[in-house]
Design a protein around this nucleic acid. Structure first.
Lengths: 192, 192
DNA sequence: CAGGTCATGTAAAGCGTTACATGATTTT
DNA sequence: AAAATCATGTAACGCTTTACATGACCTG
């Protein structure tokens, strides 16, 4: 098995998955059924590193069906409309191909706290300290949320569990990095 | 009823700064002069936590001037067009207000490696390991880039320097977190 | 004189959130 | 009976990248 690049020849006729398609495919494989379902679970789990909104999810579900990666069937609960989605074989393949292809792994961070610190020469020492403390507070809050998930997380499925562990360690370390900065600033200025 | 946005209340008439406005204001305060200049420096420094493209920068510079936060003057170098921007007092104030306001500190991460790990129950153990190793490789590469910046970074201006330190520590810890996951997987499967 | 850098910009497309709108069902 | 949750969707808007287009200046 050589390192097969996405050949234009055959088999790769499929358009690349959109970002939201990736979560949805995964969530459907995970047993999630409706758009609502997917959204709830995203908000409980992946949101820290991969968010999605209804405005993306519902249209994308339809697109996935058009593309033959998912199949929908109406399963109303009483008189309440409800559409259940399942992966097709093509969908399962697409998910697997994406998981197995190490290509173009997106990584993107938008951290306003870091941007503020970067420009903090335009602020007073006290304001700089406030920026640092603000970041610490926010990351601590995030850590609490992650730990809350941890508490209720069965170790049953390794994927989510391992991911949570990485997220927790990353966040702990981020807090430490910011705390080190705080210490540095306090030492320099001798401030409280 | 009209969608009332918090505008016409005098005291803080200024519309909120767009994301790109924040980098630009900071960069101008930092002594950067042209759009090109701003872009080069962003790519060398903040890009890891706050990116910006020409397609945003040039229009935003004009908007900032319209809003009275920046002033432009043509300073061609020879026959080559060149527009130099400077902060106005209002611009300096806006920058400072943003730095000092702890409100709504955006933090957003998009990490495809984590998403893959999350869904890796749909992959084989070997593929899961490959996902983890891919993440490690990518973060190591980023760390190298950060260290390269560090080498050439004068400690002169504390803001950028402190930010770089935070970034380096964060990245180191992220690598460790992923390596711990790799170890865990190797222990479980007894794989190479 | 070729290739790199300086310098400016635009158009189209993609991605994403927010806010709105609707109504059924379940829980308190 | 009210409030929360389940469930689906759209329209408007905002942000961002990508790809294109142009041309001057500098360095080897």
């Amino acid at each position: 098995m050589s390192t097969r690049r996405p050949d234009t020849t055959r088999a790769s006729t499929e358009a690349a998955l959109t970002p939201t398609a990736k979560v949805i495919l995964g969530m459907l494989a995970f047993g999630k059924q409706t758009g609502y379902d997917v959204k709830q679970f995203v908000d409980k789990t992946t949101r820290f590193f991969w968010a999605a909104s209804y405005g993306q999810i519902y249209p994308e579900l339809r697109r996935l069906e058009e593309a033959g990666l998912a199949r929908s069937q109406p399963e109303p609960s009483g008189a309440r409309a409800r559409t259940v989605y399942t992966l097709t074989d093509a969908g399962r393949t697409a998910l697997h191909d994406w998981l197995a292809s190490g290509e173009d792994t997106a990584w993107e961070l938008r951290d306003e706290g870091m941007l503020r610190l970067f420009f903090s020469d335009s602020a007073s020492p006290d304001e700089r300290l406030a920026i640092v403390r603000g970041s610490i507070a926010r990351h601590r809050h995030k850590l609490e949320q992650l730990r809350a998930i941890e508490a209720g997380a069965a170790e049953g499925s390794p994927g989510p569990y391992l991911t949570l562990q990485v997220g927790i360690r990353m966040t702990e370390a981020t807090i430490e990095a910011w705390e080190a900065t705080e210490r540095r600033l306090r030492e320099q200025t001798g401030k409280e």
